[in-house]
Structure formats: C-alpha cells, structure tokens
C-alpha cells in the first residue's frame, strides 16, 4: 500500500473514464472501458483484495467488454455524444 502508486492509478482511472465517455465511436468506448477495468483490477490487487481483483480481471475486462462489443455490432457503432 504505497500512496504514490495509488495516486498514479487513480489519475489514470479518472482519465480513462472521461475518455470512455467522451469518445464518439462506441467500439473505442468499449475498449477503453476494458482498460478502465484492468486499472481497477490493478488497484484492487494493490489494496490486497486479490479475489476481487481476479474477478474483475475475468469479468470486467473480459466478459463485459465482449457483451458490449456484441451489442454494438448488433445495433449501431455511432454515438451522437
């Protein structure tokens, strides 16, 4: 638990969440949400919550990205904002 390390990851988390919401291409937004999930997983592993980090790595970065991509391919890729 090193607070400098925490700070770096948290700053990246805020940046990735903002980019995921700003970008107009929904496919890119889904991918950046995957990056966000991996950063979150790193933060949890660093806090000592290994089980939660494991779950987040499998679920957040793997399956929820796949679900998002499946829906985007079945609907539309463009977003108005």
């Amino acid at each position: 638990m090193i607070w400098q390390f925490d700070l770096i990851i948290l700053v990246f988390l805020v940046i990735t969440s903002l980019i995921a919401l700003r970008v107009r291409d929904l496919m890119s937004a889904a991918m950046i949400l995957g990056v966000y999930s991996f950063l979150m997983c790193l933060l949890w592993a660093e806090m000592g919550a290994v089980d939660v980090a494991f779950t987040e790595a499998a679920v957040g970065a793997g399956l929820s990205t796949v679900f998002l991509v499946a829906t985007i391919l079945r609907t539309t890729r463009r977003s108005s904002d």
């Binding site: 929904l26 966000y36 829906t71 904002d81």
Partner: peptide, 25 residues
Amino acid sequence: AKNNYIKKLIGMTIFQTAIMLFYVS
C-alpha cells in the same frame, strides 16, 4: 446527461465500480 443508451450503461458501470472501490478501500 448522455444521450446514447450504451454511453449511459458505460456510465452505470463506472458508477458501480466506484462504489465497489469505496467498499474495498
């Protein structure tokens, strides 16, 4: 405020993970 439903869901995921982060911390 987002207009696109998928953007809304991405926002929901971020909200959710922030709460989980709070709990774990």
